[in-house]
Amino acid sequence: MIPTVFGLTLPFLIIAALTIAGAVAAALLRNLVHCALSLTITFAGLALLYLNLEAQFAGFVQMLVYIGAVAILVVFAILLTRGAGMPEYRSYSSNWLLGLILAAATFAVLTWAVTRSLPATAASAAPAVTVQGIGVSLMTTYVMPLEIVAILLTVALIGAVIVAMPESKKEGQQ
């Protein structure tokens, strides 16, 4: 039905190319805001990949969190720290060797983790995951990690409020 190239479906290839192109652009472009915007393309590509794998929930959450929040956060950080001008940076920082090593190490760890966790029988049919199913397992099997994450986020939130409070006066946000 869906045309395949090298055993991969055409939609997958297109999305993957988009994702990688976005990531490469994010690394190579000189204007920081452009980098952030290309990173958003990567996020969108990842979301599409999840959708391509029939993982609706993961895909939409990726969109909501990464495009809606993380990308904006990155952009805000750039504008607030560097001003709204157009600073140009060299694509290669002076300690590129260190960066290369770090990148290689991260990649190695990821590859290791992924290959380790692959199921032995690769061709098993994709499990039908409904949103309801995710909700139920979050509230039963994984309730502990969920709560830990919730506490962590709350602490971060309170910390942010405290940091943002004006130092001189007691009046501040809540």
């Binding site: 969108a44 979301a47 609706q56 929930f57 939409f60 959450v61 969109m63 909501l64 495009i67 809606g68 929040a69 409904t130 949103v131």
Partner: peptide, 14 residues
């Protein structure tokens, strides 16, 4: 969609 509402908010965020 199973997650229609989520889709709407995800799109709205972009």
């Amino acid at each position: 969609m199973d997650a229609g509402l989520l889709f709407f908010f995800a799109i709205g965020a972009s």
